[in-house]
């Protein structure tokens, strides 16, 4: 009962944040409502018992991605005066909404109709130590690949965003 209530509230929070990000005009408002969605999802992970993932979600998405997005918005002067409504939507925006509503509809119909091969509700307590051992044991190769990916992304982002005259100076 309480679990259902918590789920309901969290899903409303998450979806409301996402919808606000889709509809608001001011870009910074969009980014802030996006972070509401991230928090809602993190709380949902916590309520599902995935403590480590939930807290990493907050650390990475709120602490890094949301901050990065607002910095990018300010650097590209997107937070300035309110843009008229016709300027926030792309050329084929009606088609876009039709397509996304259709995708959502198809997904939900497929979900409700299909029998899910699930054995039910196991309340398994996963400790951080177990996660660490799994990451260092069977999942060590993906971990290394993610490390390389992050390094490459870091260097790539710095080089891409570096001013042109500095690139030529080298």
């Amino acid at each position: 009962m309480i679990e259902g209530l918590i789920f309901g509230l969290l899903s409303i929070l998450t979806l409301a944040g996402a919808a606000a990000a889709a509809l608001l005009r001011n870009l910074v408002h969009c980014a802030l409502s996006l972070s509401v969605t991230f928090v809602g999802l993190a709380l949902m992970y916590l309520s599902l018992g995935a403590q480590f993932v939930g807290l990493s979600q907050i650390l990475v998405y709120i602490g890094a991605v949301a901050i990065l997005v607002v910095f990018a918005i300010l650097l590209t002067r997107g937070a300035g005066a309110l843009t008229p409504h016709r300027l926030i939507a792309a050329a084929g925006w009606r088609l876009g909404w039709i397509a996304s509503v259709a995708v959502g509809f198809v997904l939900i119909v497929a979900l409700v109709r299909s029998p899910l091969p699930v054995s039910g509700d196991h309340a398994v307590k996963v400790t951080v130590q177990q996660i660490g051992q799994a990451l260092m044991g069977p999942y060590v190769l993906p971990l290394e690949i993610v490390a390389i990916l992050l390094t490459v992304a870091l260097i790539g982002a710095v080089i891409v965003a570096m001013p042109e005259d500095q690139k030529e100076m080298r």
Binding site: L15, A18, A19, A21, A22, L87, I88, A89, A90, G92, W93, L95, G96, W97, A99, S100, V101, V103, G104, L107
Partner: peptide, 11 residues
Amino acid sequence: AIGLGIALTRR
């Protein structure tokens, strides 16, 4: 679906 909508419709 909302994410797809944002990606398809915003400029």
